[in-house]
Simulated assay, not measured.
Amino acid sequence: MTRRNGDPTGLHRVLDDAVVLPQAAERLDTRRELWPDEVRIRVERLNLDAASFRQLERKHGGDRDAIRAEVVAIVAARGKMQNPETGSGGMLVGVVEEVGPDSPLGLTVGDRVTTLVSLTLTPLVIEDGLDDWDGRDEQVPCRGYAVLFGRSIAAVIPDDLPAEVSLSVMDVCGAPALTHRVVSGYDRPTVAVIGGGGKSGSLSLAAARRAGARRLIGIVPHEEEAARLRAAGLADEVVVADARDPIALRDAVEKAGGPADVTVVCVDVPGCEGGAILSTADRGTVVFFSMATSFSAAALGAEGLAADVTMLVGNGYVPGHADLALQLLREHDGVRALFESRLG
């Protein structure tokens, strides 16, 4: 294939015959040599998207060796980490190894950074077979390299936080930022966060409080997680409900003080669209942050329920999202405790 001219979107790294952006490509060029506006990262750790990791767990019945082997195979075949079932990837932590002369990212060699763009569009090479990963959670020790484009986003890891905590926060920092923006548009709203005990959910609860929410409802799937969320002190009401059961979810939210003016969906399982819609008041807003969401099911479900709600797709980027998420982590001991408990 003829070497394409560089493009800030990374189009020059696409190996498909059709002209598609890197996220939609079947395979990316992973050569080490940089185009002038690129940056190469020496990878230390991957953070797989939660929906992708759960799908791999289900597919392989918890066989850790099989999970590890499939991640290696996906990256080798595609030149990026993009789960063919969920379409999602994750992000990474590493050290800047080389910076092209025209890079606009403001990074220098030696910076320890986390990427704020998905692994689904990031050229990636794994060099160690993920031998140090036990396959038990989304955080993956990794030796290899990755390439960032001119329109990529990365943040230098702060000195006051462990790298694995920073990576976990950065992985979901779009959720609290958009939650803050949406909640700020209401006058003291009631906000329900489905998956409130998780990473994006706990940060979204904290962001909603900062934005002026009057009442916060955290929904979790079982009592053990409810106890952790209550201890964190992030929600006014914590309820246990199966988000896949639309009637049970609706009733639980109403009993806790709903329906919600804003409902934020942060769970990594499919089938939660109907319950989120039913839990939201007329003229309210549903924000979907899960890659397990079926957006056709959400649109058709709202129509079928005659639900006058605005539905937003959380795209993972809001200006200032990383700084806000890190600030929320520093300000809320409960948020940090939840993150650290998930990291073991």
Score class of each variant (00 low, 15 high):
119 L>P: 04
330 R>M: 01
144 G>I: 11
103 S>Y: 06
36 P>K: 08
190 T>S: 03
298 A>W: 06
247 I>A: 15
293 T>G: 12
225 E>G: 07
279 S>H: 13
164 E>L: 05
317 Y>K: 14
137 D>N: 08
295 F>E: 11
20 V>R: 09
200 S>W: 00
172 V>P: 04
153 I>C: 06
237 E>M: 02
92 L>S: 14
168 S>K: 05
158 P>N: 09
336 R>K: 10
268 D>I: 09
303 E>G: 15
225 E>K: 05
285 T>R: 00
27 R>Y: 13
54 R>D: 11
231 A>K: 09
344 G>C: 03
115 T>I: 06
255 K>E: 15
294 S>G: 08
106 G>K: 09
302 A>W: 03
44 E>H: 15
198 G>W: 04
319 P>M: 06
99 V>F: 02
83 N>Y: 02
168 S>P: 07
136 R>I: 10
77 A>W: 11
251 D>W: 05
100 G>A: 04
146 A>E: 08
120 T>V: 09
95 V>N: 04
339 F>V: 03
289 F>Q: 00
247 I>F: 04
344 G>S: 12
211 A>Q: 06
8 P>C: 02
112 R>I: 10
43 V>P: 11
193 V>C: 01
275 G>R: 06
222 H>I: 10
306 A>K: 11
283 R>A: 12
305 L>R: 12
343 L>F: 06
106 G>L: 05
69 A>T: 11
12 H>E: 10
101 P>R: 13
45 R>E: 08
250 R>E: 14
40 R>G: 01
128 D>E: 09
184 S>M: 12
220 V>K: 03
76 A>L: 10
294 S>R: 05
275 G>Y: 12
310 T>S: 09
66 A>R: 14
108 T>Y: 01
231 A>L: 06
128 D>M: 08
